[in-house]
Write a protein that binds this DNA or RNA. Structure first.
Lengths: 198, 198
DNA sequence: TAATTTTTGTACTGATTGTTACAATAATAA
DNA sequence: TTATTATTGTAACAATCAGTACAAAAATTA
């Protein structure tokens, strides 16, 4: 009694994935519903019947990106290896994310935040939540590093986490805007040295 | 013989300033030529007669923003006071830039870079140039700090400059996406401590 | 004044925007 | 089979997009 009528012949989840890439490449204002239809293969009927609006589809995309992202980031940061290795892995993961794709670049949440967080409360909310969770995870890592003595600095965990966070986002912005691997490696080097150096 | 015909009754420079704000608030794709006309007070005839296209006006805006920006930044970084004060002033300047406006936020060049650098060579070029010049200015400051002993770390000037650069861009992204002054101050604190701390 | 040159506003272009209407289609439940 | 329900593709919607055509207006030069 629950599922009468013609079943849809596409996979909801796959559509969100494809739409993610389309929004990623073009931004929200920069891509049309026509683009979304041709990229996903859906007709307008199906797209609007399923998602209701371009904005709602965008929301689904951002929520998924956030959930996948914070999962991956936590996995890296909570791995029971040395703190230095964890942070190093975190940077390596970001670097790979940014250089493995040739058509879309950077962190989708940053792109969305800069394009729309000011006028779009939905975007603001998701980005805020993500940053908050990431910052908390980083603080826990820094606390552990300070406790075990792996980090010898006399800085607070909060300050260290904030430094790392901003450096990380700055790195992704720089990579996205100007494709420069050397600079990226210098940023990573400079940040790691600042935390673990003499 | 040089200026015959009806003179324009608006100031080119002022128009670029107004257009800058319009692009800043809405992004490139997010604002229409209609928006630009109503904000500047120009008719379409005047706007297209003067600038030729939306894209050309955007270029004028970005070039002016870049020139003004790098001028201000260099002025702060080359001020003959202590290196620590200079970098502190630099952060204070960024903080003020981001919090003094309520309608438009962040660094226009970052916004432009993330929205368009990938498909628009003009944008990529201006952003690259700006980052390069800023990085050079930062390197000179770090070299001076290392030479005078004000910076006691054993990091290279390049690494220190890269760290500061990414942290600075990360800061501006964070402020733009999530309005959080406390986090901003933690970022600044964390970065300054990393460079000048024990 | 008259000829010349540029600016200005208005109307308009074809294309595209996000969204809706709806009939044909295809499945299930009875 | 028949009734029901959801999905699908197509056509269309008013609104807006970037850009153009052009004549009226306003200045200069002669």
């Amino acid at each position: 009694m629950s599922k009468r009528g013609r079943p849809r012949d596409f996979d909801y989840s796959s559509i969100v994935d494809v739409a993610m890439k389309t929004f990623w490449i073009n931004g929200y204002e920069g891509c049309s519903t026509q683009n979304l239809c041709s990229d996903t293969g859906l007709g307008k009927g199906s797209l609007y019947n399923t998602f209701g609006s371009k904005h709602e589809l965008y929301k689904q995309v951002l929520e998924r990106y956030h959930e996948n992202g914070i999962r991956d980031q936590k996995e890296i940061l909570e791995n029971p290896i040395s703190v230095k290795e964890r942070l190093s892995n975190f940077f390596a993961w970001a670097l790979e994310e940014d250089f493995k794709h040739t058509d879309h670049k950077g962190c989708l949440l940053i792109n969305a935040g800069l394009e729309r967080a000011n006028h779009d409360p939905m975007v603001e909310e998701i980005v805020s939540k993500h940053v908050e969770l990431l910052l908390q995870a980083l603080e826990r890592v820094m606390e552990e590093g300070l406790r075990t003595g792996e980090i010898k600095k006399r800085q607070s965990a909060v300050d260290l986490a904030s430094l790392f966070l901003s450096s990380y986002y700055g790195l992704r912005v720089l990579i996205t805007s100007i494709q420069n691997r050397t600079l990226a490696e210098q940023v990573i080097n400079g940040t790691m040295e600042s935390i673990f150096g003499a």
